[in-house]
Write a protein that binds this DNA or RNA. Structure first.
Lengths: 191, 191
DNA sequence: ACTGAATCCTAGCAGTGCTAGACATGCTTG
DNA sequence: CAAGCATGTCTAGCACTGCTAGGATTCAGT
């Protein structure tokens, strides 16, 4: 491989990342409905077909942004869990970190959990950052608990439900903390 | 008001319902992405502008379908709760009824809980059928429990999370029952 | 029967995701 | 060094979306 083609590869990778960050920026400032292929092409100063030479479609772009989000969320959850004094506190810390992430980065959260993407969940080909996020929840339960996987799914589902229902105004967004407290107390008072 | 204008009013109301049921049928057979104003107009054998003389926009049509859905869901939940032998069994029955509704009528469920609509939740102007659905969850907890409203929100959120995450393939849809069992047992083992 | 009003449809706008084919650019080979 | 090939990029356009202005048509009351 020649030096020039290496440079082109590098430039291409750089542009690839440009597209992802541009999509994310537009989404975070104006919402995902404002992320159109035209606007995105404008932002990166290329034409639309260039986008499609990097991604199969818009879903793939959303998926790329989501993947970055999973990496960030995994970091937040891990730090929350590790800096907690004990197992019970760990669950609380992870839940609160999850909720904080969802409220502070709503666009990113949407890309990860509500918008259609080409990412495959709960499979062997599931990318590592996504697995990591889930594993942080699993890690909050005792290793000898056979149902820890199930517990993780349920608590994750509950948190996600709280997020989306309050985000769409279907439950009042005011008392989020109380809901999380209740949720955590439910798991705390069970063997 | 003359007899003819009364007849026209009647016909208009009939057409109104036609639009709603047509939208619902298309959604249930081909998904909501297939519900376009053109297809809908075709189905009811009128032109697109007629739709807009009945509804402010597509969101309002989705909202109308959703409202029907809330009425049906409220009925299911109420029957489930009332035919349960005791309070603990009532919660289980309501949860299972909710999940069954979501899996058997996915399009309707989407209109009610994930698509953007006209409907306003958790407010004084919230239509009765929607209030009723929520009240069925509240009714599963003891009347002297000050936090029964909060409990209802949390269990509803958890169920909704389970529904949407499994529907979008983000958690494996196989073991739904186990998740609900776990969720119920959490609430059962708390004062 | 005539006029005014209510009703409805045709045609079109501005936007969407996505792509075929023309164009220019740069690389490799004779 | 020049010819030709290949890579990369853009213009222009397709088929679709929700939505609407304005003309045509039908109907009601006088």
């Amino acid at each position: 491989m020649s030096a020039t083609s290496e440079r082109r590869e590098r430039e291409r990778a750089h542009r690839h990342q440009m597209i992802i960050t541009a999509a994310r920026e537009i989404a975070e400032t104006q919402g995902w409905e404002a992320v159109t292929t035209r606007r995105l092409a404008d932002r990166v100063e290329y034409s639309q077909p260039v986008l499609y030479s990097h991604f199969h479609g818009k879903d793939a772009i959303v998926g790329a942004v989501a993947l970055d989000g999973f990496a960030e969320l995994a970091g937040h959850l891990r730090r929350a869990r590790e800096s907690a004094p004990g197992p019970a506190a760990a669950l609380r810390a992870v839940c609160q970190a999850y909720l904080r992430f969802a409220t502070e980065r709503p666009a990113l959260y949407q890309a990860m959990f509500v918008l259609p993407t080409d990412l495959t969940f709960a499979s062997a080909e599931t990318p590592a950052p996504m697995q990591d996020c889930f594993d942080e929840f699993v890690g909050c339960f005792r290793a000898d608990d056979e149902r820890r996987g199930l517990c993780a799914e349920v608590i994750w589902s509950a948190l996600h439900g709280i997020v989306v229902l309050s985000d769409s105004g279907r439950i009042p967004p005011a008392v989020q903390d109380e809901r999380v407290d209740l949720l955590i107390s439910l798991f705390a008072s069970t063997p």
